[in-house]
Design a binder for these strands. Structure first.
Lengths: 225, 225
DNA sequence: AGTCAATATTTTGTATACATAAAAGCTTTT
DNA sequence: AAAAGCTTTTATGTATACAAAATATTGACT
């Protein structure tokens, strides 16, 4: 068995996580280690190790002696997630405003510029890439790896609905102003303003997301997504 | 092989976590799945599954093809942890103030009373139990299970120094007032006040903890705890 | 004695084997 | 035809086996 740069355990983890996030595995569905192992042409052992990690991240649920279930998100979960995002990303924005690293400050501006460019040409995939990078840079400026990991995990949890969310009429266009608001504060060293702007931005996202779920998505499924 | 109520995987997880938290396994030390398996009289498979969970929680680090290392906490880690605790527990306190459940409100008061009783008789173990319960009730009132899980994990990470911390001259006595402050706000339905009091409390804890680490603990170890 | 090379040992990562429990399928009975 | 009981199958949880890589140990040589 060849030892590659990444372990099979890691490959299984990435694969299953991706499947969950892209709805390849649907909420409420049961998956088995044997099937995943078969799909990846590996044994059950590394797959099971990956399952246990994903359970710890809240993407899978292990029902004793029954199997592994894809977690189903409720509306309350969305509120929990955004309550936490609001305070944690607010903190990160405030901390980022204290960052003096010129390279990172430049990278933040660059990411914003790329977001605007992507919108100008209607490239939503490019916009999403820029958005990811912008948030990465922000957390690096804040210098808080735990906050980054936690928010990453929270985002993984609602990623399923993100695609549909971004497709909402005008959502991306509106978001530019919100992003610009906290970025300006960060670059001006205005921590309190950055925190406030970030929280407003996330509340905007939450409000529109909840509207989408309540009106469009949830009516067509049983208990959640 | 008898199937007990808890799986061997869970037993291994609990065991290793406990060892790390109580310094049975020291920061920086390497542990092997075989040794843990031997100690628990089980095979390596469930132990490895537990290791992967603990890595995800930040208590273990897997160094590729080298082994599993007990994470070493730095002073920056302590600040990261308390930055996050401050905003997340602040949020929880604010949300708890909106709770109307009379049973939970009573349970909160009871826990505070038990804390005071424990202090009166100098029972520090009893105080710690009451403290745990108080925070459990608070999160239940807040109704935010993700926040509870995250804070639980953050607390697990610095638990190693908690014992020494509580032994600090007068720390427990001072903490009563701090606890009482946010509890009164919560019971009065004053969310903003509860959040403020909680953050002040945690900043107090952080300040004293950092003082302890900088002056007493860190001078005697290499890079962290 | 000290250094380097070669061998032995340990440990990690993965595969396979197996027992038990749950689920599915098949009789048999009413 | 529906229900109850038995059998077969599947899947989970764990143990064991094995190959590759890293570490430790031995021994030769200077």
């Amino acid at each position: 068995m060849s030892i590659s740069t990444t372990t099979y355990q890691q490959q299984a983890y990435d694969f299953v996580k991706r499947q969950i996030m892209n709805l390849g595995y649907r909420p409420g569905e049961y998956i088995t280690d044997s099937l995943v192992a078969q799909a990846l042409n590996i044994s059950r052992t590394p797959v099971r190790e990956a399952f246990h990690r994903l359970e710890n991240e809240g993407l899978l649920i292990n029902e004793a002696r029954r199997g592994w279930k894809i977690y189903t998100l409720s509306l309350e979960d969305i509120h929990e997630i955004f309550d936490l995002k609001e305070v944690i990303e607010g903190l990160a924005a405030r901390q980022a405003a204290a960052c003096q690293d010129e390279q990172l400050r430049q990278a933040l501006q660059d990411a914003l510029a790329r977001m605007k460019d992507a919108i100008a040409v209607g490239d939503s995939a490019g916009w999403m890439r820029a958005d990811f990078e912008l948030h990465d840079v922000l957390f690096e400026m804040a210098g808080n790896v735990r906050a980054q990991r936690i928010v990453q995990n929270l985002n993984d949890q609602w990623h399923r609905v993100r695609i549909g969310f971004l497709a909402m009429e005008g959502r991306i266009d509106r978001s530019v102003g919100e992003h610009e608001a906290f970025i300006v504060c960060i670059l001006n060293g205005d921590g309190a303003g950055a925190e406030r702007a970030m929280r407003m931005h996330l509340n905007q996202v939450r409000a529109e997301l909840v509207r989408l779920l309540v009106n469009v998505v949830l009516p067509f499924v049983e208990n959640g997504v």
